[in-house]
Amino acid sequence: MGSLTFNYNQDTQDMIGAIIGGIRVETPVLSTLATYWTNPVTYAVFNVTGLIKIIAMYMEVTGVFDAGASTLVFRWTGTTPAVGIATMGVASGSMATSAVGSRWTFLGPGTVTAGPSAGISYLPAPFLVGGKTGAGVNATGVISALIAGGTQAADASGRYVLHYAAMTEGANAVSAI
């Protein structure tokens, strides 16, 4: 007997991916060094409406990082109702020399971590972000990235990816870039 593959059409495969791996949103590839990879810089990456469960969130390296000791941490800011900017977890170690395919992954209260190697990363524990007001209205907020520690001066680029599930009616997340 030969090998076995179920020949579903692409839409069906993508739907199964969304059911198991969550709904996926991505930023574009971010390559403007002064805007995205300079110490320090912060920018919104995802706008969140309502309560979502983060299944995975990471920055996937698409252009190799140089020796600059850049670090990454995600932050949450409530828009409605207003909640002051708060750090989500602990900043990564240096992202210097990160290879293409590396994923710096949000680990809830843990440290943003890559690896174990380019092209291979672990599925993190899920995390809840956002909420709903007492009036039953979906809160809105922003997940942002803070780059600090060092500056990239060469070819660094990456995209932010969020896989999530809606936890309140009408909840969703979209790229802020």
Binding site: V29, E60, G101, G119, S121, L123, A125
Partner: peptide, 18 residues
């Protein structure tokens, strides 16, 4: 254990092949 995320997408938006 937990699953692994393997592979990736290039800067050009093309699926990696591994």
């Amino acid at each position: 254990g937990v699953g692994f995320i393997l592979g990736g997408v290039t800067a050009a938006g093309v699926n990696m092949i591994g």
